[in-house]
Nucleic acid binder design. Structure first.
Length: 520
RNA sequence: GGUCCCGUGGCCGAGUGGCUAGGCAAGGGUCUGCAAAACCCUCUACAGCGGUUCGAAUCCGCUCGGGACCUCCA
């Protein structure tokens, strides 16, 4: 790949679009990108907004790999129940997991550990259904408490942390760079908070600076507790990510990402902890995914208007939202969620979801055409094959250029779709796709799938086969009867049979090679 | 109060100084027993005002409108 584009991303640290450059190479000379992306707290089902952020990370990994890099990708699961007001770190707020356990849904679980396990499993299942790449390491906070305790000790030794009756705090004034990521550095402003716009800021009287945040919280009432040199308690929320990132990726990582809300305080605090501990830069570049809106409204847990992946992809019997057209193709949802560039707010609407589903169909159709031609296509004209190959190479190159340009997915998707449409147009010509042309087309679809994950090759299209449909037998029988009626020119009976099939939610399409069908 | 982002055709969304992205929808057509699908054609926009420039959606200023963070949240 001699003329591979440079990979540029908007760096939150500088607010500039900058080249992303792996700082290391492996033994073979392959560039190695070390990337950490913050995962969710598993106290409920992940919603589509969470997945927009995870998809940003997914696309970073895919683009890096498409450029020939090795990407060491770590994304955590936060399974410790942290406080809702951990930013002020004084013990205000509730434990999120305890609250979830006490809720109606929580009744099904024996304890917080059980609850965390359930929602972690659900997360992984949704992760796979949307075709997200599995991280090289998916560390859990509860499995890294020992490392977190050591980090607290290290920060105390270096004079960046102190102990009070309630816990151990990071002393922000000991780290002059605090605020370099978010711009929130003014102590008085932070102390004042939103100046009455939100809530009373409860302060731990023994904290030395209002910005100081908890590294370890002593709380005998917490449902998850570990023993430490500072007594029984649990680690502060910000600590786990910096500790786990450094454990698996080293003191300085290339890229760290998450949702826009994490910029402050979470990532700001991670920087403070990590850099105070090692004296080295923590992450060279930061990216943040803007929030998703639903029908123009902000989606948030407090509003309760969030959509989970399964709300959209499950059948109504399994709890899918019929008002949203469930069950929708998970890859259509994926396509929709990446159709806007990650750095801009994205408005998820029913109409956009329906549009995405249609768009996704193009890839499914192209794949089907290629598979059919690959089995039986003629040898074909070498010139046509070569022309197709060139067109597809161009389309792929444009898609990759788009992705390299700060993950410009709208541009990349447009280019990718252009290629799929080209394949379809060749397939629909009288001679159709020759076997060699089909091979070129398949290579293209494979590369596009590797880059964008929307073709469905990775998931193996077997489950999309008509034969897997429980209604297939019945429909086939009705279709055969209708075909017979059509041959008899009994149009009234043929139309009546189509109405019957239509009532099953199936659309019939007649083609030169016989009728086919699909779900509405 | 502080910080920041955005206003593109019916809708979604690219495009950072000249060469009409793309998708969906809509209208017309071809094809078809009818339909569906497919294919072809049509729809030339950049919130408003002013400025810079030979030339601005693109740069500058102002106005209007929408949104985000500084609470929970990806």
């Amino acid at each position: 790949m001699p003329d591979a584009p440079s990979f540029r991303l908007r760096n939150t640290l500088t607010r500039e679009v900058e080249p992303l450059v792996p700082s290391q190479t492996d033994a073979d000379g392959t560039p190695v990108l070390r990337f950490y992306s913050c995962g969710p707290t598993v106290y409920s089902y992940a919603h589509v907004g969470n997945f927009r952020t995870f998809l940003t990370a997914d696309l970073v990994v895919r683009t890096g790999r498409a450029l020939g890099w090795r990407v060491d990708y770590v994304s955590n699961v936060t399974d410790v129940g942290h406080l809702t007001e951990d930013d002020v770190a004084d013990g205000g707020g509730e434990d999120k997991m305890a609250r979830a356990l006490a809720s109606k849904e929580g009744e099904a679980f024996a304890n917080v550990w059980d609850l965390a396990r359930h929602y972690t499993d659900a997360l992984l299942s949704d992760w796979r259904s949307l075709g997200l790449i599995e991280p090289n390491v998916r560390p859990r906070a509860t499995e890294h408490v020992r490392e977190q305790i050591r980090a607290v000790e290290g920060l105390m030794e270096r004079g960046h942390a102190y102990e009070t009756e309630d816990g151990v705090y990071f002393h922000v004034p000991s780290f002059p760079d605090y605020g370099k990521l978010s711009g929130n550095s003014d102590a008085e402003r932070l102390a004042a908070g939103a100046a009455g716009a939100s809530r009373e800021v409860v302060q731990d009287e023994s904290k030395r600076d209002p910005r100081d945040f908890a590294l370890w919280k002593k709380d005998p009432g917490h449902l998850m507790q570990w023993f430490s040199p500072f007594g029984w308690g649990f680690p502060g929320w910000h600590l786990e990510c910096s500790v786990m990132a450094q454990k698996y990726l080293g003191e300085t990582i290339d890229l760290h990402g998450g949702g826009e809300d994490l910029t402050f305080p979470h990532h700001e605090c991670e920087i403070a902890q990590a850099e105070a501990l090692t004296g080295e830069p923590f992450a060279r570049m930061w990216i943040h995914t803007r929030f998703l809106q639903v029908e123009g409204e902000k989606m948030s847990k407090s509003k309760g208007n969030f959509l989970t992946v399964r709300d959209l992809t499950a059948t109504p019997e399994e709890g899918g939202r019929e008002d949203w057209g469930a069950p929708v193709d998970p890859l259509a949802l994926r396509l929709l969620l990446i159709s806007g560039q990650y750095g801009k707010p994205f408005n998820l609407t029913k109409k956009a979801l329906a549009d995405a589903a249609k768009n996704r169909q193009r890839y499914a159709e192209a794949l089907e055409a290629v598979r059919e031609a690959g089995e039986s296509g003629p040898a074909g004209d070498p010139e046509i094959t070569e022309g197709l190959r060139e067109t597809l190479d161009d389309a792929y190159a444009d898609a990759l250029d788009g992705m390299a340009d700060d993950l410009n997915t709208p541009v990349a998707l447009a280019a990718a779709l252009r290629g799929a449409n080209t394949i379809l147009s060749v397939a629909r010509q009288p001679d159709g796709l020759s076997a060699p042309a089909a091979q070129a087309a398949m290579e293209y679809l494979q590369r596009v799938d590797d880059l964008l994950g929307i073709v469905g090759l990775a998931a193996d299209g077997a489950d999309e086969d008509d034969s897997a449909d429980p209604l297939a037998e019945e429909i086939d029988a009705l279709l055969a009867a209708r075909q017979q009626a059509r041959e008899d020119k009994d149009w009234a009976r043929a139309d009546a049979l189509r109405d019957e099939i239509d009532a099953l939610g199936i659309v019939v399409m007649d083609t030169p090679s016989g009728p086919t069908w699909r779900r509405k």
